[in-house]
């Protein structure tokens, strides 16, 4: 499970500058003159099998130091199509938010999301994997370490479906709220653990007594896994990182963002 491993390796590398900063480092806010790139469309499309709904957020890039809200994109034509030729129209419910909650999605289907805006059509295809069941979830108390504060950490156990490549994303809700900091982005693949019973320890998400944890383990496809892996790299830049680049999108025609068809299994636990 190289994904997890990479995270811990990265934390290790971060220490080096940290140690030297502790000695004499200093920070100051400076003015940097950045160019303003032409606005580019950003598409965040999610098709959830369990909820039978497709949710598409459309926005545009804005000036980096800009103070205004990022512009939402209205008036686009959004369609979802499956590999059997069924077409679902996705209507704008509020500014920039397009929803169709009547999509009867099947595992094993290919779904294509297309967005037409200002004469350009952007499309992406995603494969809907069947859900993988969480066998159980538990928690354990861990002491304070160099990287992590003391507290409770959640363990998830599941059986990886054998003989195929699987890609996962885990969303963690703490007391009803989705944890969405950049290090809460948990994606991994099954390389090296194919068909095994897997324990995932959520090291970065700390819980206290009486906290409620709601876990969503999503089965995603490879391009989406790659998107989130590279998004995580950009969101966690640290000194000495290689030149940052935009995450690898599954959309064509230069759109930013992703379209993911996924299914999930959930668990709910209370830390006692």
């Amino acid at each position: 499970m190289t994904g997890f491993f990479k995270i811990s390796m990265k934390s290790l590398l971060i220490i080096f500058p940290v140690i030297s900063l502790l000695v004499t480092g200093c920070e100051k806010i400076i003015d940097v003159d950045l160019n303003d790139a032409n606005p580019t469309i950003v598409i965040e499309g999610n098709l959830s099998m369990n909820d039978s709904s497709v949710n598409v957020l459309l926005s545009e890039t804005g000036s980096y130091f800009g103070d205004g809200q990022l512009r939402k994109v209205s008036g686009a034509i959004v369609n979802l199509e499956d590999n059997e030729g069924n077409l679902f129209q996705v209507d704008e419910k509020e500014e920039g938010l397009y929803i169709n909650d009547q999509v009867n999605a099947r595992p094993g289907g290919h779904y294509k999301l297309s967005v037409s805006y200002k004469g350009t059509e952007y499309s992406a295809v995603s494969f809907l994997n069947p859900p993988v069941r969480i066998d159980s979830a538990g928690y354990e108390r861990s002491e304070r370490t160099r990287f992590y504060e003391e507290g409770y950490r959640i363990n998830i156990f599941f059986e990886d479906p054998p003989g195929k490549e699987n890609y996962y994303r885990i969303n963690v809700y703490k007391n009803g709220e989705l944890m969405s900091a950049s290090n809460d982005l948990i994606v991994f693949d099954d390389s090296g653990i194919d068909g095994k019973i897997v324990q995932v320890k959520l090291r970065g998400q700390r819980f206290n007594t009486h906290d409620r944890a709601y876990l969503e383990m999503c089965a995603i496809d490879k391009p989406v896994w790659r998107y989130f892996s590279t998004l995580r790299d950009v969101a966690n830049l640290n000194p000495g990182s290689p030149a940052p680049a935009n995450p690898i999108s599954n959309f064509n025609n230069g759109a930013l963002g992703y379209f993911s068809a996924w299914s999930y299994d959930t668990k709910f636990i209370i830390i006692k």
């Binding site: 160019n35 303003d36 580019t40 545009e60 980096y64 800009g66 990022l70 969405s180 998004l231 995450p247």
Partner: peptide
Amino acid sequence: VTFPSGKYEIDGKIIGYYTER
């Protein structure tokens, strides 16, 4: 050095938009 030439929001995070290396 590579700096962002814009920003956008995705997955609840503000991310830099990079146009050239």
